[in-house]
Every structure is written in structure tokens, then in C-alpha cells.
């Protein structure tokens, strides 16, 4: 049997490139208007996973937790060379903080079974916490290496990785299984045209059912046949709920989250009275004089 590694990915709102349309008239961000993208550092994690697949003949299984349309990032993974994809989706997961999220993802790893290496992006750009990776490792009681730039070597029993530390780098060796969080230190490959042709048809159960409902085709046997056909063609994206991963309902979603959000405030850049200085010699001399007089300069 092939050795297996898992990559966790996330679909996130594009918080870094906020265009005019995503701003409200009050100068705050309209979150609903932001496009959904593949979390950037998760692409780095996927790239590392795919490199290890090429070097060591791993099977690469990708997984994401999110709403049904998060299947899109899983297809993006298949386009780049991932072998199998799992969408972890259930209303019961909603409102999860990092503790509840990492618990659910650790249940997914256990359900998959026989995973040698887990890769995550360091952090997602919507929350920027960098907590879920280390917390999955703790839940599975395995070592973690955070901020990985590259894997130096990988044997049956151990991984040696270069990772960032304050003001430099470190080479760490850890026994397997282990979890690595990956930073923006490789060049993620683009989707391959051949894989797009094949995997654009890859679907989750909900997506298949929706397609068939739209075609007015709801016979149970027909649905089952279609599912089997997709599985046989390797176009099946697993769709797992809380029961499938045997998650304790008290430890997921809002219920499993110790942190509560008390309030959210939009950042509005304060519009204080800015003194306009003419870009002329006189204007600039005046500014410098003022700054020297109030002891800011000199």
C-alpha cells in the first residue's frame, strides 16, 4: 500500500485585495462581497505535499472543512495533482473556534487512517491565528514542526525539515507521523490542463444530487448508480459529516468552542484634520520649521 499524506486546505474570503466594490459607503469592508479564494499558504502546503508525492510516491489526500461550496478548493487541489479529496461539512460544525475546528480535523485524520504526514498552511488570511495546525497535532498526540520552508529528507520513520525561527532558521528532525505547517517559501504549481479536463467533473454527493434534481431525476436507484459511476471514474469527492468522522457533538461547532465573540467593530481609518502642505519650497520649509519648533525634529 502507498504511504499517505494529508493536506488541509481552506477556502477564505480574499481579505488582502479589497477592491472598491467590497467597501461600504461608511468606509468598512462588506465581507459578503469579497471573492472566495484558496488560502495562499495552503497552496504552499499542497505544493510541498505534491513534491513529496513525486519524490516518495505518496498518496496525497486533501481535506477541507466548510460549507458545501468549499468543494471548489478541493477541485483546485485535484487540478494540481492531489489523489483524493474530502469535504468535511455539517451544520453542526458552524461557529467553531480553533479548538473545535482542530478537534473535527483530527477526527477526520483518524477516519482516514494510516497517515504518515499532515501538512497545513501556517495560517488562513481570514483569521490569521496559526492555531489550527499545532492544535490538530496536539489532538493526535503527534509532533509538530511549524513554519516549514522545505523538507530536507523523509524516511520511513522520520522527517527532517528546515523551518523559520526568530532571526534565522533551524533544521529539525521528528519521528513520523508528524504535522508540518508550511510558510510561503515555495512556488505553488498551476493547475494542469489535463487534470482540469478530468476533475472539473469531480463532485460531492450534494453536488451530484443537486445536478440530478435540476434535471428532475430523483429516482433513488438512479442516484445510487450515478454515485457508483463517479466513484469508479475516481471523480468522487467524499462528503463527510460529524457522524461519519465520529465527532463528539459536544466538542464541535459553537458548543465545542470556548471562545465567544463579544463584539466586532469595523476599522474605519480616522479622518482627523490633516494639515495640507503644498509641495513647494515655502510649504516644506514651513513644515520643517514647525516640526523643529515643537521639538519633533532637531
Amino acid at each position: 500500500m502507498k504511504r499517505q499524506l494529508m493536506v488541509f486546505v481552506k477556502q477564505v474570503p480574499d481579505t488582502k485585495n479589497i477592491s472598491g466594490e467590497a467597501m461600504t459607503p461608511e468606509g468598512t469592508v462588506n465581507r459578503a462581497a469579497l471573492p472566495a479564494i484558496f488560502n495562499p499558504e495552503d497552496l504552499n502546503a499542497l505544493e510541498l505535499g505534491l513534491q513529496l508525492k513525486e519524490r516518495h510516491n505518496f498518496k496525497v489526500t486533501v481535506a477541507t472543512m466548510g460549507p458545501p461550496n468549499a468543494a471548489e478548493v478541493l477541485r483546485e487541489c485535484l487540478y494540481r495533482g492531489a489523489d483524493e479529496a474530502i469535504l468535511i461539512t455539517d451544520r453542526a460544525f458552524a461557529g467553531a473556534d480553533t479548538l473545535a475546528t482542530s478537534y473535527a480535523l483530527s477526527c477526520c485524520v483518524k477516519t482516514v487512517g494510516n497517515v504518515d504526514l499532515i501538512l497545513c498552511g501556517r495560517q488562513a488570511i481570514d483569521g490569521d491565528t496559526a492555531q489550527v495546525g499545532p492544535q490538530i497535532a496536539e489532538k493526535l498526540n503527534i509532533p509538530q514542526i511549524a513554519y516549514v520552508e522545505e523538507v530536507i529528507s523523509l524516511s520511513d520513520k522520520a522527517v527532517k525539515a528546515k523551518r523559520a525561527i526568530e532571526g534565522g532558521y533551524e533544521i529539525l528532525e521528528s519521528p513520523l507521523p508528524a504535522l508540518l505547517t508550511v510558510i510561503d517559501a515555495n512556488e505553488p504549481r498551476s493547475a494542469s490542463a489535463k487534470c482540469i479536463m478530468k476533475y472539473k467533473k469531480a463532485k460531492t454527493r450534494s453536488e451530484i444530487h443537486k445536478l440530478m434534481r435540476d434535471a428532475d431525476y430523483t429516482d433513488a436507484q438512479a442516484l445510487a448508480d450515478k454515485e457508483n459511476e463517479m466513484k469508479a471514474k475516481n471523480l468522487w469527492i467524499h462528503e463527510w459529516d460529524a457522524a461519519k468522522i465520529q465527532a463528539d457533538v459536544n466538542r464541535i461547532g459553537l458548543k465545542g468552542s470556548p471562545t465567544k465573540v463579544k463584539k466586532i467593530e469595523n476599522v474605519v481609518l480616522k479622518a482627523d484634520k490633516v494639515v495640507s502642505i503644498e509641495p513647494t519650497e515655502a510649504g516644506i520649509n514651513g513644515l520643517i520649521r514647525e516640526l523643529i519648533e515643537d521639538h519633533t525634529l532637531g
Binding site: T98, S102, Q131, E138
Partner: peptide, 22 residues
């Protein structure tokens, strides 16, 4: 820091505590 953000989550997870980053 890099250390704090690597250690904090691991400890919080084991303690079953919330942790707010940054």
C-alpha cells in the same frame, strides 16, 4: 512571536482552553 504562536496553541489544545491570537 514565532515561538509563542507555536507553543500557545499546543498548550491551549491540551488544556481545552480558548486562545486568542495576536
Amino acid at each position: 512571536t514565532l515561538k509563542g504562536r507555536e507553543l500557545g496553541p499546543r498548550v491551549a489544545s491540551e488544556m481545552m482552553c480558548g486562545l486568542t491570537a495576536d
